[in-house]
Amino acid sequence: MVKGTIKIDAKICKGCELCIIACPQNALALSPNFNDKGYRYVELISNVCTGCANCALVCPEAGITVYREPKPAKKPQVKVE
């Protein structure tokens, strides 16, 4: 499985939970804490994130940045002469 992670801008998150239902890995949940605007923001709660970006695509606040483990470099092809 590809490994990934996300960064959530908790200051602008409005706790709409749309990312939570979009995440195929169930890796997101509302924090018990509130941000300055009074919303419970979303947090990554496990390390099963694959960096699929589903959460970021549906986030209305454009507040999620997604990172992915780089694909392993392809083996150089050896030409047989």
Binding site: T5, A10, E43, L44, A53, R68
Partner: peptide, 22 residues
């Protein structure tokens, strides 16, 4: 990978990870 970063209230990333969406 998923621990809270107190300053950003966000999450930290591995250094070698590449950004795929922002």
């Amino acid at each position: 990978l998923y621990l809270e970063d107190e300053e950003n209230l966000g999450t930290q990333t591995e250094e070698n990870y590449e950004q795929v969406y922002c």
